[in-house]
Nucleic acid binder design. Sequence first.
DNA 1: TAGCCGCGTGAATCTACGG
DNA 2: GCCGTAGATTCACGCGGCT
Lengths: 372, 372
Amino acid sequence: MAALREAVRQADAPFENVILKGDCVAALERLPKASVDLVFADPPYNLQLDGGLTRPDQSVVDAVDDDWDKFASFADYDAFTRAWLLAVRRVMKPDAGLWVIGSYHNIFRVGAILQDLGFWILNDIVWRKSNPMPNFRGRRFTNAHETMIWAAKSADARYTFNYEAMKAFNDDVQMRSDWLLPLCTGAERLKDGAGRKLHPTQKPEALLARVLLASSKPGDLVLDPFFGSGTTGAVAKRLGRSYVGVEREQAYIDAAEARIAAVEPIAPAALQLLRGKRAEPRIPFGTLIEAGLVAPGAILVDARGRHRAEVSADGTLRSGAHRGSIHRVGAAVQGFDACNGWTFWHIEAASGAVPLDALRQKLRDDMAAAGG
Amino acid sequence: MAALREAVRQADAPFENVILKGDCVAALERLPKASVDLVFADPPYNLQLDGGLTRPDQSVVDAVDDDWDKFASFADYDAFTRAWLLAVRRVMKPDAGLWVIGSYHNIFRVGAILQDLGFWILNDIVWRKSNPMPNFRGRRFTNAHETMIWAAKSADARYTFNYEAMKAFNDDVQMRSDWLLPLCTGAERLKDGAGRKLHPTQKPEALLARVLLASSKPGDLVLDPFFGSGTTGAVAKRLGRSYVGVEREQAYIDAAEARIAAVEPIAPAALQLLRGKRAEPRIPFGTLIEAGLVAPGAILVDARGRHRAEVSADGTLRSGAHRGSIHRVGAAVQGFDACNGWTFWHIEAASGAVPLDALRQKLRDDMAAAGG
DNA sequence: TAGCCGCGTGAATCTACGG
DNA sequence: GCCGTAGATTCACGCGGCT
């Protein structure tokens, strides 16, 4: 019965649940026009890395140095982007949706070209990484997110968005444009024969799951023109969607096929049970200054009034020759190695000295009440 | 009186703490080349609102369903963006930084043009709004963030980044690329005579404060080419920075001037930057020998006692066949390319093994106490 | 067993200065 | 402007080994 159904589907739509080998643009010419319901694309980021990078302990960072991420110029990258977006556009149904993920190296170029080609941006979604790689040289902010653009084929498309499902998924408040998810690590990360990561940029299944649950229906055909290790296919199968992948390297195709074959689709009813977890917001000391609860120049004291420190505008404290965070200065004035500045330092208020921790709790309550 | 004050200010530093009235590009021609340290720009992104398209000059685009007109409109916006970015680029010092804030309507075009003009993106920063406006029609994700691009004028620029201050601000972990901050509401939001909000997109002062604290020094000149209600000027004055604004509408200029006049600057002592080791005066290892803190012939060991080296009178170390600076020999004995000899090597003292870095710090403290 | 600790690692445009 | 060298720099989490 299942075999019969499959045979009918194949005759009807011969490109479901297959991986096409080859260059993205050429391979997409084999697909019929207006045949896919959703596209998820993870194109090369054009990182433009120059030289190696080591951690402070001198270990080497395993960076993306593959040939597929090398472009001679922005113009070359733009031409590449325009070509694959046009090829993808041809096979999209009129109401199909498109997702593209990238970083600041490439996402602005992708977004501008998308708009130039007539795609209609619906949201930009920020994937906030709960465990990003730190900045090892201390010369920039920690690059802790990637950006996804969600677009329809045109401004008047009747795209799919499962609003109610997303709201239920998110504890009955609207799903926001910033998603907190961990990197793909541990057992989920595919390894090669030597135990090294198979693919340098494997995306977490939770990310794809949220994309497919939000913007596709069961039975939809999902295209991934940069299939890689097959995360899109694995999640599509698990969630009762079909997939078409395009990939150039046979090693990735082999790994993806084995991976997808091992996936057990979940019962449709179980889709309802997925829930996102919400982390308690961490509030740094600087936020108290930004919120106006502590003024630059304010004097902090410890509970017994033995130590004093002055608050600087940048969120550091000064006490005599000591300078640094509330924790560092708290430790220094006591001659300790460590100190919890939140409970050690107090600020004068009408009701007496209040620990910083109490102000932080107040801010946390306010933010929770505001839905943050 | 105001005119006199203005004249004096002009003589002293002709373009500090003023608002230039007029079109952004034309007004910037009045500023000298390479004169500003930092730029914060909140350009208009009046595209695609309510299905209608308007050009940057507010003229209405006809026939919004027409693909050609969409192209024309994007092209107009791109030309506008290129023009003001070029004008800004001219007045930036070689090591100046640039911030641009926008949403998915415009930020991709701005980012791509930035790169085309030779700016070097350092981070894209996501402002996560703790209290965003909900999505009323339930057809998209709640648009809960805006994007800021932080860029240097060129790839080899030595831009300002107060890494240590940001880290202390954030409870001693690196500041990430996603910032959670509330919208500008309540008393901070400027109102017009009728109690309506004065400016449609007034940014919160906390956002500007973090930008200026991260990427400028006290006394720096900050340019805002789309001054609006003057948030950049107000925060700059409060944080001991100078500002130049450009604004077309007199109503905004009047409101901004009154607003900035009421700002009380923070005491300079509370503005001192937290200096990291990088900013400390350099002390060669030989100085420790000259000061008698390390004797020629002394034996150095690493923290775990695995490696030993002998100090020569000329400030080099010897360990087996290895000979050279504390850094070279530290790297060689470990088989690494690099090593920080100050933290790697220890010397025996009554209280146990002390890193060379502690001796160096003692020397620095002594020199500071001596007024050196 | 449970818990502690060390180790490995992730899409990264990652130094500054003097000669 | 090139080149050589001093010397500054990391967070979250999973896993395996040891107590």
